[in-house]
Design a protein around this nucleic acid. Structure first.
Length: 539
RNA sequence: AGGGGUGUCGCCAAGCGGUAAGGCACUAGACUUUGACUCUAGCACUCAAAGGUUCAAAUCCUUUCACCCCUGCCA
């Protein structure tokens, strides 16, 4: 089952239009990559792999004002994390060639220097329903244009005083074809080229040239560039100096319900300190997702599942969650962790009582782990696992009720203590005889099971639960992070990075992504909840 | 004198004239020492709408409607 781009490639390969395909992912280094970029990366790199081609990483660094090396390094790291391999190029390395082509267009009479003000140029462009007007500089002689452009290159014009324009059609219904600007004067320091250049090419001019230089066969980008394709083709055609003629194909960008996938928006969240940084676990950035605990494989699976099409769509976050659950269900270390714990005392055992119990993990009928846990007469259970007035179908501990302590015994609740506010602080239970896990002769069936943590063997941890960063009005959701106190068996803490905390969900030890400075350094162990378990309990 | 795209289940998405794949979500049940996993069953007589062509239309034609993109010296 091939998507529409694969169909094009298969046809091009079958007709020998190309014997080998070449793709590229061309980010501007002006921010961190997010999961929407992962989709684009995986489409391009995935296509290259599937058809035995190549996929370059090319930094589209034609606007020095917004770009820097921190972003370059971060992007390289994220690309590699996703499994990409290939060559790295920089658009700014092509500036000489780009300049040369611009000069040739002047010589061909299809480019001219316009000395109009930005306002005049905007005014002359017309509107969506009105044709534009031709600039008075449109018919300057080739010699004068050549000299004028050299003056631009030499820095003889201030910013905004001169631009190089392609001479196409001021009455085109496509605004991009109304004599688009292809070079502008910029007195900015370029993070790689320094102060070498005073003029910088515009995306529409530079991009097709970059593709052609690298021999790209299929230039895949997102839908909003559809209107730029005629200009892309125009530049390639007018340049007339390339062996391979690249073609542009557009696909819909990713939208996820409850998230806003735009660099601009994410950079604001970081700058406004609404999040801790680019790698905040709530962020849809690749570094954020990674810190949250998502694996590269789960993101690949997700991008594969959502498909490639040209229709604008918004994917349910449940699809992403399903991908990581599916993976971690088979790979995550299981551990019992008591969140918002209350004390539970076994009244018919003394302080010296201890047993070593076997905790098996069975998934899909397969035993994937055997661990051991100690128990004593003082343990912790979740506050939510005890109820004085249980709701219907409650399968946990109630006054006078029975429940099995996972991997241990069935216990009966004898009594409980509350504090002055009526909150339960301690629950007392007795052990049902002959009910030990694995050798149960009690004859009791259908008893609910809850997890627990041995008090003597426990360590305090914090767990962080996350919700959507934005509310339904796209405003910051202050409840997007919740920090809870919990108890964990200290023997399990270092067993893995990613856990399934039994009956809770999948968690990952919090570890700031390298390269990114982290403001809060906690001495206490912190686990991020990647995603909760599906909950079949009908409340 | 506007142009370029897209509309198939709650959400993605196959389908390319021969009688609506799949995934996610959801519902019911089985199993269960995780209310998880797994299993079983259910979930579009209909493809934005209306006409038309055809033995046969989501697929072809016509008209209409809705949504997205384009008037940066951003990419």
């Amino acid at each position: 089952m091939a998507n529409f781009i694969e169909e094009v490639i298969e046809r091009d390969l079958a007709t020998k239009k190309h014997t080998k395909i070449a793709l590229r992912y061309p980010p501007e280094p002006n921010g961190y990559l997010h999961i929407g970029h992962a989709k684009a990366i995986l489409i391009n790199y995935g296509l290259a792999q599937k058809y035995n081609g190549t996929c370059n990483l090319r930094f589209d660094d034609t606007n020095p004002i917004k770009e820097n090396d921190e972003y370059v390094q971060a992007i390289i790291q994220d690309m590699k994390w996703l499994g990409w391999q290939g060559n790295i190029y920089y658009a700014s390395d092509y500036f000489e060639k780009t300049l040369e082509i611009a000069k040739s267009l002047i010589l061909k009479g299809v480019a001219y220097v316009d000395l109009s003000t930005p306002e005049e140029i905007k005014d002359m462009r017309g509107t969506l329903t009105q044709v534009g007007r031709e600039s008075k500089y449109r018919n300057t002689s080739i010699d004068d244009n050549t000299k004028l452009f050299q003056d631009m290159i030499d820095g003889k014009f201030e910013e905004g005083k001169a631009v190089l324009r392609a001479k196409i059609d001021m009455s085109s219904p496509n605004m991009n074809m109304r004599d688009p600007i292809i070079y502008r004067v910029l007195n900015a320091h370029h993070y790689r080229q320094g102060d070498k250049y005073k003029v910088y090419p515009m995306y529409d001019f530079a991009h097709p040239i970059q593709d052609a230089i690298e021999g790209i066969t299929h230039s895949c980008c997102s839908l909003e560039f559809e209107n730029n394709r005629p200009l892309y083709d125009w530049v390639i055609q007018q340049s007339a100096c390339f062996e391979t003629i690249p073609h542009q194909y557009e696909f819909a960008r990713l939208n996820i319900d409850g998230y806003k996938l735009s660099k601009r928006h994410l950079i604001n969240l970081v700058q406004d300190n609404l999040v801790q940084g680019w790698d905040d676990p709530r962020m849809p950035t690749l570094v954020g997702l990674r810190r949250r605990g998502y694996t590269a494989n789960s993101i690949k699976k997700f991008c594969n599942d959502i498909g490639v099409s040209k229709s604008n769509s918004t994917v349910d976050i449940a699809m992403l969650e399903s991908c990581i659950r599916d993976e971690l269900n088979h790979t995550a270390q299981r551990a019992m962790v008591s969140i918002d714990p209350i004390e539970l005392v076994v009244i018919d055992r003394d302080d010296n009582w201890t047993e070593n119990l076997e905790l098996d993990t069975v998934v899909d009928g397969q035993t994937i782990d055997n661990s051991f846990v100690k128990i004593s007469n003082k343990i912790y259970i979740d506050r939510a696992d005890f109820a004085i007035n249980p709701p219907p179908k409650y399968k946990r501990l109630t006054v006078g009720g029975l429940v099995r302590l996972k991997a241990a015994y069935i216990v009966k609740c004898e009594k409980y203590d509350t504090d002055c506010n009526g909150n339960v602080v301690k629950v007392y239970v007795s052990i049902v005889p002959n009910s030990k896990s694995g050798q149960d002769k009690s004859g009791l069936k259908g008893v609910g099971v809850i997890h627990w943590v041995d008090a003597k063997n426990s360590v305090d941890i914090k767990v962080r639960h996350f919700d959507k960063l934005l509310d339904e009005n796209d405003k910051y959701n202050p409840n997007s992070i919740e920090i809870l106190e919990a108890k964990m068996d200290k023997d399990f803490v270092n067993k893995a990075e990613r856990f399934q905390f039994l009956r809770h969900g999948y968690y990952c030890i919090d570890k700031p992504v390298a390269n990114i400075q982290q403001s809060n350094t906690q001495s206490q162990l912190v686990f991020n909840r990647i995603v909760g378990l599906k909950d079949g309990f009908k409340h």
